[in-house]
Design a protein around this nucleic acid. Structure first.
Lengths: 226, 226
DNA sequence: CTAGCTCAGTTGGTTAGAGCAGCTGACTCT
DNA sequence: AGAGTCAGCTGCTCTAACCAACTGAGCTAG
């Protein structure tokens, strides 16, 4: 029955064509509308909130959620942490998921990235160089580079999924292993990826991405032996 | 605070190294353990259930969930349906997400698939032929083909993610557009993919996968004009 | 007249206690 | 020995009350 309530609220969003950010009926209204107690309504909303379908703001109201990939990030991260503590190589699997997908995509991107995006990537690589000189590349910069790179594929859903993978990996990594790659190597590898993509050399681009992931994997293995 | 309860339950799973299927404390126990009311415990559990982190069985108990990708499938499907009804081409985006990822992966697979897996794929293509002769290829068969294909990459997480994409797409497609591809074309295209992979011809394999998706896209467009 | 404050009203958050419903396992009767 | 029953766990739903966050109208001070 609880399942049923969730479905009916979802149906309500669909039927009313509610866009993300649109207000939903109050808990009291939903009570009457669905003919169940407030408690049940709240449990259903909590579940929908966990899936990112609704957004609840205390003292303000309930709204249609952003439908982002945040819940997926959350779930992936937890699954990976839980697996890690039980002796699985879940973090490595997550990294290899990213590697498999990103190396597969980079070839299609080579030579296809518009000038504006290349300029943005140039700026990010420049920032990496500056940050490397000061000791460590900021995580945000790395994330922005990957996001800007695959934005060129022109699929927002794909971009969000890749970003979710990135974030899940990053969160688990900083939680478990002390993060730490040689910032100068990181900078050099990103510069190489960008150069290959700019030249339209698909094979070299793929090799560059693979090297980048090899580097991360190496760091993971060395710090993970505890 | 509700957020806090969820985190503490998650922490409990991590700290106790609980594997999927392991029993969690009862609601009453969690009440005392966390020092909150039964209601709050239940709301937290509902949210965790929605994320697949716990599994609740009425009259039996609460258990650590399978941590599958099912919640992601759920979320993706809803996001796509909601977007579709609001006039977005969300279903097409989901298809292109699959296309981008699968065409990227197939090249790495060409010539690398062990004989046992090829035999399994042969069997599935054979089943497709039989089903096509009877009118329509069963969805399960198509799903099994894609699953068996990418299983060869040796990453369970990756396989689950791809399968989740497949299922989300399939569910939305059958919900929205009347499903319907020419079953003989479907069979032929899968046979071609398998042949190219067996020959180790990466380019041909990629082209075959792309054709397959082109075919689906075409059907989508023609039935989606309502 | 305006800027800022206060307070009432709305909305979600939390608690408490009661009874319902599904499942298991032991106990009993045949 | 086997099948039926019942007691006890478990989670599920409801009601009723109060707490906490936010908004906005109205009031007060400048």
């Amino acid at each position: 029955m609880a399942r049923d309530i969730q479905e009916r609220i979802k149906k309500l969003i669909i039927d009313r064509r509610l866009a993300p950010g649109a207000p939903l009926p109050t808990e009291t209204d939903l009570m009457e509308l669905l003919g169940v107690s407030r408690n049940s309504v709240r449990e259903a909303l909590k579940a929908l909130q966990a899936m990112g379908i609704v957004e609840i703001r205390h003292g303000f109201g309930t709204y249609v959620g952003p439908m982002s990939m945040a819940p997926m990030t959350e779930g992936l991260a937890f699954r990976t942490v839980a697996g890690h503590y039980r002796g699985e190589d879940s973090l490595l699997q997550l990294l290899e998921l990213r590697e498999a997908v990103e190396t597969g995509l980079i070839a299609r991107l080579a030579g296809q990235v518009p000038e504006a995006a290349l300029a943005e990537l140039d700026e990010l690589v420049g920032r990496m160089a500056a940050e490397a000189a000061e000791g460590a590349v900021r995580a945000d910069t790395d994330r922005a580079f990957h996001a800007a790179l695959y934005r060129g594929l022109g699929n927002r859903l794909l971009s969000e999924v890749l970003d979710a993978f990135w974030e899940a990996f990053h969160r688990v990594r900083t939680d478990l292993a002390g993060l730490g790659a040689d910032p100068r190597v990181t900078h050099r590898q990103h510069a190489e990826i960008l150069a290959a993509v700019r030249d339209g050399d698909a094979l070299r681009a793929e090799q560059a991405v693979r090297s980048h992931f090899d580097n991360i994997r190496l760091r993971l293995r060395s710090s993970g032996q505890k």
